[in-house]
């Protein structure tokens, strides 16, 4: 990474922000308050929605980069989520004492180790997946869909072979169990952790994408990889790096999702892929900021609708996507395409 300390002429206008899209979630939250009626219920629903949104963002952010930069439709992304979750077992067994200790620092350390191990495992798997499965089918969407689904099926069976076919129950670390009560509202502790980690990851990704040469290259590569090459940068290496990073982020999402469910199954990643595809389409393919806003939007709407009109809950995600695409057919934050 290189600092972008370039000469900047003074007194120049700053880039404009897209406030309409940025304010969607705050406006939705404000609009939901009178509809929900009770402040405590609203706090609980909103906190749950934000936490769910952050977990979806963690699982989807890597895919949107891979889709945007490499033009690769990776239906196998879900398996990195599952493997990230299962990789926790490598840690939870040996460090079971840390999970049961009534110590926030130890529990946080355990979560950090789980995340590091899961990201390392999924990054390594991503490297192999890109080399063996993705690379031969660049530029062919149909083959990508077929071959990545095939890769996913193989990887899911491999999970059965390594960890068994039965669901695996895990327990949250002691300090993350239970809820924080604020007045009449209860917010689960683990959701606060999920929100914090989601924000840290989003801030880190935003920093890399907007403040470093690597980030500029990724954003430029999403738009016009040929011109990036003509400027002298090796886009193929960037592809591999982004695929590996995207796989590692899916692994991180798998850890958070696994702890949230407290039951691991080989298909748990694939089960959320519909949601993941919805948020990256809503956000605009290749846009990390769009993925973030789209994740929060989908999760908040699902929670509010589930409370206000339970019968509509099943279709709320599709409705949100249809409305957003009617408003902005390229997604909330469209990335200019070649």
């Amino acid at each position: 990474m290189t600092d972008l300390g370039a000469t900047t002429p003074a007194s120049l206008p700053a880039p404009r922000r897209d406030w309409a899209a940025l304010l969607l979630c705050p406006v939705l939250m404000a609009a939901a308050l009178p509809l929900v009626g009770s402040a405590s219920s609203w706090v609980t629903l909103t906190a749950a929605g934000l936490a769910m949104g952050m977990m979806i963002f963690l699982m989807a952010s890597g895919l949107t980069l891979v889709f945007g930069l490499m033009d690769v439709i990776n239906f196998g992304h879900g398996v990195f989520i599952s493997i990230g979750a299962y990789a926790m077992l490598l840690v939870l067994g040996p460090l079971a004492g840390w999970a049961e200790a009534d110590s926030l620092p130890l529990n946080l350390a355990l979560l950090a180790v789980c995340i590091v191990v899961a990201m390392a495992v999924t990054a390594a798997l991503g490297l192999v997946f890109e080399r063996v499965i993705i690379r031969p089918v660049y530029r062919s969407h149909l083959k990508q869909i077929l071959v990545t689904m095939g890769g996913m099926i193989v990887a899911e069976q491999a999970i059965h072979v390594v960890w068994g076919a039965s669901p695996v129950a895990i327990r949250l670390p002691e300090a993350f169990r239970g809820a924080i009560v604020i007045g009449d509202a209860a917010v689960e502790r683990y959701r606060v952790v999920a929100v914090a980690i989601g924000l840290v990851v989003f801030a880190g990704m935003s920093l890399v994408l907007n403040r470093t040469r690597l980030g500029l290259l990724i954003r430029a590569g999403v738009e016009n990889p040929e011109m990036v090459e003509a400027l002298g940068y090796r886009i193929r290496r960037l592809f591999v790096g982004v695929f590996v990073a995207g796989s590692a982020l899916a692994g991180l999402g798998g850890v958070m999702w696994g702890f949230y469910r407290q039951t691991l199954t080989a298909g748990m990643g694939m089960e959320v892929m519909v949601l993941v595809f919805i948020v990256i389409i809503i956000g605009g393919l290749g846009s990390v900021g769009g993925c973030f806003v789209g994740s929060l939007l989908v999760a908040l709407v699902a929670n509010y609708v589930g409370f206000l009109a339970p019968k509509l809950a099943l279709v709320s995600n599709i409705l949100v996507m249809a409305l957003v695409l009617a408003w902005r057919p390229q997604g909330l934050f469209p990335v200019a395409r070649r």
């Binding site: 972008l4 011109m227 400027l231 200019a336």
Partner: peptide
Amino acid sequence: AYVPESMAVFSDLTVRENMVLAARSGPLDS
């Protein structure tokens, strides 16, 4: 250095960011 017919500026990046990427060897020379 190549300037294509389509111009191929990176629309999503600022003018400054386009120039930063073009200066491959380091910071832009003032």
